[in-house]
Amino acid sequence: MHEHASRFGRADHLVGICSLPDADARSTGVIVLNAGLVHHIGPFRLHVEMARQLAGRGYPTLRFDLSTLGDSSASGEPLSREQQVQSDVADAMTLLRERSGCTRFVLVGLCSGAQNAHLVARDNEAVAGVVFLDGYAYRTTGFKLRHYLPRLLNPARVARHLVQRLRPAQPAGSGFRVEFPPQARVREELAGMLQRGLRLCFVYSGGATGYFNHRRQFGECYGRALARHPGVSVSFLKQVDHTYILVGDRARLLDDIESWLCTHFPHVDAPPETPHNVVAIR
């Protein structure tokens, strides 16, 4: 595995690092999107560890910063945020294709990264799969029963809840708040991705328990047919936090992603072309 730093993009405004296998590169590349405002190394260096592990297993992997995030600049184009994300990821695909020869891509995104991955996967034909970390889900009746019933049946928790309600609001901790599009639209778009043959991996953490609290909820949200589709994989890591702060939790997540990739994207390509246009400080 070796790494190259690049400035790239239609306005030469993006910065990213390609992690490339030394031999036996697979035909599927992996592109890791920003998690919130954290620059491309990811929360607690998650994206660096992910890129190196996946490249070590043969998957060319690019971690980069979208326009105006991390080390990347603005493109200067009059684009909406959605258009900008789509164009930036298309630029990232071009770079990884040039460097490694891969022809299709798996996107990985955590939180807002999952939303951006959804946005791109919806329209971009080069996307073959997506790993959504704390991606979209919606509160269902099952969610509410699982969430409220234990509280109502426990007098101490009811009392604690009432006391909390009487206290002034606490400053925000590491919790997160995101705005989701309508559930029916997301369901339809996910179904469209599966129809196109995409493989989708959903991982929900304990940090998402404000809107997702059981693996079964995925089917409650999107329907049994979609949840049981062979292209869909769902897991719920209840003990784990939203940004994988513990070393052991990160290692398990990365092993799970690697295993999912090896199952769904096992193809090995011819050796990649020699990298060019490497930017180095000399």
Binding site: F44, R45, G175, G206, G207, D241, I245, L246, V247, D249
Partner: peptide, 24 residues
Amino acid sequence: LRLDGNRFVAPRPAAALADQWQGF
């Protein structure tokens, strides 16, 4: 951090946090 209710649903075992400082 082990007991941080804003981060974890339930306290994590001490061993899971050993030899680390805030994520590293």
